[in-house]
């Protein structure tokens, strides 16, 4: 049974907090032994997930809770991010086409695409009023 180390950060939903979130993730990913490229990938994926929560789940209402937990399990990092806002339906997500986005002057929809490209596995869970995004990345 591999040992599990966990680190948790509780923040209130605000873009003010994004830098602190990135520092938290990069610091622990580095200590876990990820190389610089992987640290950048995990940090960006968590930023994108939290930005989506701030924008879409909480619709820019500040002060709402976001819980971030990092767990090191074997050679893998598990990231869990929990919010209590509007839930995201992954089945309803349509992969954006760059040219369509440009034509329509749209600027969002890329966070999820990036998360999927940056992490090894991504899943969404909903339990009562809590939404969770779980992502993993192997070292």
């Amino acid at each position: 049974m591999p040992s599990i180390k966990e680190h948790t950060l509780h923040i209130s939903a605000s873009t003010d907090e994004l830098e602190r979130i990135r520092h938290f993730v990069a610091d622990h990913a580095g200590k876990f032994g990820f190389d610089e490229g992987d640290i950048n990938d995990i940090t960006l994926a968590v930023d994108e997930a939290c930005t989506n929560i701030i924008k879409h789940a909480y619709e820019w209402k500040t002060g709402k809770p976001i819980h971030i937990q990092l767990a090191m399990r074997g050679n893998e990092m598990l990231v869990s991010i929990i919010d209590e806002g509007k839930s995201f339906d992954p089945a309803g997500y349509k992969m954006p086409s760059m040219q369509d986005q440009l034509n329509q002057k749209k600027r969002s929809g890329y966070g999820i695409l990036l998360i999927r490209k940056l992490m090894d596995h991504v899943e969404y869970r909903k339990r009562n009023s809590r939404n969770e995004i779980r992502m993993t990345k192997k070292r």
Partner: peptide, 17 residues
């Protein structure tokens, strides 16, 4: 030093104009 999709979105929003 760093960019996320929110930053990339600004380029996308104004390029056609």
């Amino acid at each position: 030093e760093y960019i996320s999709s929110a930053g990339l979105g600004v380029f996308m929003a104004y390029i056609e104009d």
